[in-house]
Write a protein that binds this DNA or RNA. Structure first.
Lengths: 190, 190, 190, 190
DNA sequence: CATGAATGAGGGTTCATTCAT
DNA sequence: AATGAATGAACCCTCATTCAT
């Protein structure tokens, strides 16, 4: 999903590359960056160690790349969800629903982004900042609009967007801890 | 017994222990659990490797303990901040202010809790969950109260408390990225 | 698959494995289990540390396995020697001769079994007990037979077998201390 | 017992020294030379680490000294046992009995000598050789005498003495494995 | 004399990475 | 392209030994 055959990776023969990336997200999410070994990844992908280094320069590069792609994927999904709704509450609700859906079908994606190996890889701090900023940007626009229309009180919408993105993360995380996240998600209002 | 223990000796020992723990928090926060080596810690504390193991059973135990202690510290600070205010907005404002203050003077504390090596240490998952739950609990009470008084619309306060704690985290994190976090924090409304 | 395995590769691997085991027996015999470091072993085998762990799970497992194998080897050699002779004195004589031969060509083997690191590795106590028991069993049969035929006085042959195996060990050990163990061994009577 | 206050160690104030030596024999016997730590010894003796180095130059020296003393103790005991009997069989029987008695009351002594850390400490090889030689000497005299009197066939009594000492060791070791070594020992004939 | 905090060399083991095949 | 044997730096931790008190 995250690493779905985009334009970059559409060559027909890179089934192995894809397999390794899928395996990598899972393994990284499960064990964290450091505890996940290259061996873990290749054996999950059922290839040899050497093959890993044919497709990727090294473990860290792959990890950063995976983070980037995963973040982009989630971002796009949320954008889609938000775009299709008219009012702010509905946008939020749709975003949470979409977020939870991803979290259910691809727990690794969410784990990687939210509790994953940030901090483990220095190069990721910057990446994470970009990701968070994009999330905030995503919410600021609807907030500004709502404020213009007088639907919400005048406020620092930047700050509110930050708050909103943090709020959604936390709610989603808690929802994913429940046995039936998707049902619960339907009943969310803020 | 020419050797008097439990006197100045005792105090010195405690001081060194504390110094080592402080060094450890810094190093863990900076590099993450796995990348931080025991050697990093001891050289930050200016002692020998063996000294580490004289004071602590092992790296993991120390880390978990540090996380626990740090979480408790932050939690208490927030509780204090919240208790002293009358209305919900003021409580939130005070919490953010207090949170930011800690983040400015002890960046390591906040880093350890929010982006730290959770996931690196299995034993920490449970601990992290407890910490998040405490944060949520902290906010639910004032929310319930506000709802009872009709100050906020009827809502699922559990969910709202989750959202609120996530919102605050995110806002604080963004504030800490600015050059003058404390000034900015004064102007926070939600 | 440009890489042909299970061919010369397989043989080479086995050869290296064997070489490492031989090096290990020597080193263990020379220094004892604890004093022998994995580094000692690998440099005796002229490979890198990592290679050791590619072939063997860990130091202790290898040691136990080596002990087992060595014991089995000696036991078989003695059985062969004993089987080929008709009378008890000749059996004993042949066993000593064979024992000494092994001790001359493979001092490490004998050293490992008799003065080796038993006690250093808890798992070995049981193994050693089994080995000694096998030795005793080896002698009890001919003793019983000799007693039945009236060639030796009625006695507790179990005890005698124990005595005999201990006696042989000691004699062999003393013989191996001499400059010309094999010549001397020819002149053994009990 | 082994380290009983001989003439050397009769100073009144060395209770600690004695305690440490007693503890050391036990610990060495139990864990082997390398696995036994100085800390094990001192905590068994209930003194501080520093104290160890006040009384002994280092771990190895103590071990060698202990081996020496222990060997001497056993040797004297066997000599006593042998001296008091008239015939060879009775001498042997008495030696076994005495040996077993020691093994029952001071298992550490026997363990240290027979399966203990020989090989762990290079300096001990020579010591062990001396000990074995003394044992052989112990038996050669009665054997020579018996041969002179025509009680046993003409033979290489050196070799026989070796055999005898090895035989006794092994028998004693097996006896000590039984639940009631002392009763069993009474019924020993060779 | 006795103590125990402090040291640091060194041990077992892991794992990212390379390279001959 | 693909393999997996081989490497060795680096990690965590132990423990004999020292020395200020």
């Amino acid at each position: 999903m995250t690493y779905r055959s985009t334009e970059r990776t559409r060559q027909k023969k890179d089934a192995k590359r894809t397999a390794m990336m899928q395996a990598a997200v899972r393994v990284f999410a499960e064990k964290g960056y450091h505890a996940a070994t290259v061996r873990d990844i290749v054996s999950a992908a059922d290839v040899a160690v050497g093959t890993f280094y044919f497709y990727f320069p090294d473990k860290e590069t792959l990890f950063v790349y995976l983070y980037e792609e995963t973040a982009e994927f989630l971002l796009q999904a949320l954008k889609q969800a938000v775009k299709g709704r008219a009012t702010l509450p509905k946008k939020i609700s749709a975003a949470v629903q979409s977020y939870v859906n991803i979290g259910v079908f691809e727990p690794a994606v969410v784990h990687l982004l939210l509790v994953g190996g940030v901090g483990a890889v220095p190069a990721l701090l910057e990446q994470r900042a970009r990701f968070r900023k994009s999330l905030v940007d995503l919410w600021q626009e609807p907030l500004d609009e709502a404020m213009d229309k007088g639907l919400i009180l005048p406020q620092n919408t930047r700050r509110s967007a930050e708050a909103l993105s943090g709020a959604i993360d936390e709610v989603v995380l808690h929802l994913l801890d429940r046995p039936d996240p998707q049902q619960y998600a339907s009943a969310t209002v803020v």
